[in-house]
Design a protein around this nucleic acid. Structure first.
Lengths: 196, 196
DNA sequence: CTAAGAAACTATAATCACTATAGTTTCAGA
DNA sequence: TCTGAAACTATAGTGATTATAGTTTCTTAG
């Protein structure tokens, strides 16, 4: 096993990359629904069967990375947070630099993000990917707070945090929206409202 | 406009009912994926085109009612709550008597519920129906708390409440799970944990 | 170096959800 | 009773996805 991948793996990655790039370009040009998987396969110069071999989750998955990076960021953000910082604060800061919450991105990533936010099918699939990290996030939270990872409170918190991108992503000011939601999760819903 | 529907509307309702009943029966017998819409249409003795005319959202929608009852319950539960009761308390009590949170149901509804909970595609669609009520619920909450219905805090609370059935529905004790989540929403996440 | 054997790829055909079209029957109301 | 709308039908098509069976291309153990 060499440090550099063998030719086979390199070609495989190349094909997958060609599919992603082609899909992103065509989606940007004609809209998600305006492109068929057949067109994508054609322009990437592979057969349809090959396309689906690379993207088992289907058309929506084409422009998303296979690797489960998402979970890694968040779990790392919790584990490596400065001492004294709360778990939710760490998550808030981590999310603030990602996805819909910053414009400090290279232009290709910005185009991709806009495409996702503007396409319901892609938004839904993106949410699915986030939610898939629920278990890992719950485990990390449980570790830090000395609770059972199966505790419904922990699971719910993890789920609610992971829903934030979809919930706040379409707002006029996504970052402000995200902060409002984190405040809600930290302090709870004030009822009766903050008068007598 | 007679008090009883005309024959035309009666027949339409009949057809829709036949489709629902047939779909529920076949899904129960062979599983959701083990039944094609063609089979359902056949057994209900209508054409496939007619089936889709009745169920524009597709296969999953077959066993759900068209009417948007869900929102109505919840909004009414908030508006008509005893004075002094918090909004979240009203929602908690309302949900406790519905869907996955009680076994006090006629056997056919119980079968239907079990089918939904046990079938990912149906769970997802059910969630979609709940989420569709977000705007109405947010409006009701905003009215009671004197906030802007577009306030992200209000929208987030509404969304989080509506996610509870999917989140708690698959737990061993759904009712206890639901209560834990409401506690989280009311009080927020205690961090650092409840020691010094 | 070479011969399995695995992995990636291909064409082809099928299945299935869903839509479009164009025409027929049935009811409702003037 | 006539007319138009609504519900229905058969038919054909689109597009995603899967199954099958066979071909090419790398890897690697001998």
């Amino acid at each position: 096993m060499a440090t550099t991948m063998g030719r086979r793996e390199r070609k495989k990655a190349q094909t997958r990359r060609a599919l992603s790039d082609t899909a992103l370009r065509l989606f940007s040009e004609h809209g998600y629904d305006g492109v068929t998987v057949a067109q994508i396969a054609d322009e990437a110069d592979v057969s349809i069967a090959t396309l689906f071999a690379h993207v088992p989750d289907g058309k929506e998955a084409l422009i998303f990375d296979d690797g489960a990076d998402r979970q890694v960021w968040l779990v790392a953000a919790i584990r490596d947070r400065p001492s004294g910082q709360s778990v939710l604060e760490a998550l808030r800061r981590c999310l603030a630099g990602r996805g819909p919450f910053t414009d400090d991105l290279p232009p290709d990533l910005r185009r991709k993000r806009d495409l996702i936010v503007g396409t319901p099918a892609l938004r839904e699939y993106s949410r699915k990917l986030w939610i898939a990290g629920e278990g890992a996030l719950a485990a990390a939270i449980a570790t830090e707070s000395g609770r059972d990872p199966a505790d419904m409170t922990v699971r719910a918190l993890a789920r609610y945090v992971l829903e934030i991108p979809e919930l706040a992503g379409t707002e006029a000011d996504p970052l402000a929206a995200m902060n409002a939601i984190f405040d809600l999760l930290e302090s709870g819903w004030p009822d009766p409202p903050m008068n007598a």
